[in-house]
Simulated scan of single mutants.
Amino acid sequence: MQMMMIYSSPRKRGNSTTLAKVFAQTSQNQYTLKEVHLQDAQLQPCRACKWCKTHYRCVIEDGMNELCLTFKESEAICFSTPVFWWGVSAQLKLFIDRLYQLQMDDFKDKKLSVIATGEDTLDGVQYRLVKEQFEAICEYTGMEFAGYLPVCADDDNPAGENVEALAQARALFTGM
């Protein structure tokens, strides 16, 4: 079985990536990992041309077609994202928008986990909004919302030093 790990932080050692790497290490006994750092992908935004709906691939040749193949082949997906302005990173939003080229059956029955880090307290609205977005995406696409880990982390409180958050990242996988 294959899991696609999507790291969407602009920082390769950012808080969301740190927790997602722990999640990924925990999953290696059950899944073959395909890791993608969206910051390195240099993806372009969707042009809304709908060419993909008749050709089943995007007209833009920037690597997203290959990422969509990996997405289709994966039984599990994990998105890790910092939270900016009450939502996911621009890199992850761009990736999600470009998944438009896929057919609805390409999403069905995949397990989706999400790791989100930000500076707000855990009872802050940003984490609720991110969770609700992915719950709605799963409901629409037929994916299973397998888990969500919101963590308050910043430069003064890094995730890599938060023993509880690291344990929660490991537990997130075991709950799948």
Rank of each mutant, 00 (worst) to 15 (best):
78 C>T: 13
78 C>N: 04
79 F>N: 01
79 F>V: 02
80 S>L: 11
81 T>N: 07
81 T>C: 05
81 T>P: 00
81 T>I: 05
82 P>S: 09
82 P>Q: 11
82 P>E: 03
83 V>C: 14
83 V>Q: 03
86 W>S: 00
86 W>Y: 15
87 G>K: 03
87 G>C: 10
89 S>H: 08
89 S>L: 09
89 S>Y: 04
89 S>E: 05
89 S>Q: 05
90 A>Y: 10
91 Q>W: 07
91 Q>Y: 14
92 L>A: 02
94 L>W: 06
94 L>G: 14
95 F>M: 01
97 D>F: 07
98 R>F: 08
100 Y>Q: 05
101 Q>S: 12
102 L>E: 03
102 L>P: 04
104 M>F: 10
105 D>W: 11
106 D>R: 04
106 D>H: 05
106 D>M: 09
107 F>W: 09
108 K>M: 09
108 K>H: 10
108 K>W: 01
109 D>Q: 15
109 D>P: 01
110 K>E: 00
111 K>N: 07
112 L>V: 12
112 L>C: 09
112 L>P: 03
114 V>L: 11
114 V>C: 08
115 I>Q: 06
115 I>G: 11
116 A>V: 06
117 T>Y: 04
117 T>S: 10
118 G>N: 04
118 G>A: 01
118 G>P: 03
118 G>W: 04
119 E>Q: 10
119 E>K: 08
119 E>I: 08
120 D>A: 15
120 D>I: 08
120 D>V: 11
121 T>F: 07
122 L>N: 07
123 D>K: 11
123 D>W: 01
123 D>V: 01
123 D>I: 00
124 G>D: 01
124 G>M: 02
126 Q>D: 07
127 Y>V: 10
129 L>T: 14
129 L>P: 14
129 L>S: 10
130 V>F: 14
132 E>A: 15
132 E>C: 10
132 E>S: 12
133 Q>H: 13
133 Q>P: 07
134 F>K: 02
134 F>N: 04
134 F>V: 03
134 F>A: 04
135 E>P: 02
135 E>W: 02
135 E>S: 13
135 E>M: 15
136 A>W: 01
136 A>N: 12
136 A>Y: 08
136 A>G: 11
137 I>G: 02
137 I>V: 14
138 C>F: 06
138 C>N: 12
139 E>I: 03
139 E>V: 12
139 E>N: 14
140 Y>N: 12
141 T>W: 03
141 T>F: 01
141 T>G: 10
142 G>D: 02
143 M>W: 00
144 E>Q: 15
144 E>Y: 10
145 F>D: 06
146 A>I: 01
147 G>W: 00
147 G>D: 11
148 Y>P: 02
149 L>Q: 05
151 V>S: 12
154 D>G: 13
154 D>A: 00
155 D>W: 09
156 D>M: 03
156 D>R: 10
157 N>P: 00
158 P>E: 07
159 A>S: 13
159 A>V: 08
161 E>L: 13
161 E>V: 00
162 N>R: 06
162 N>P: 11
163 V>P: 05
164 E>L: 06
164 E>H: 13
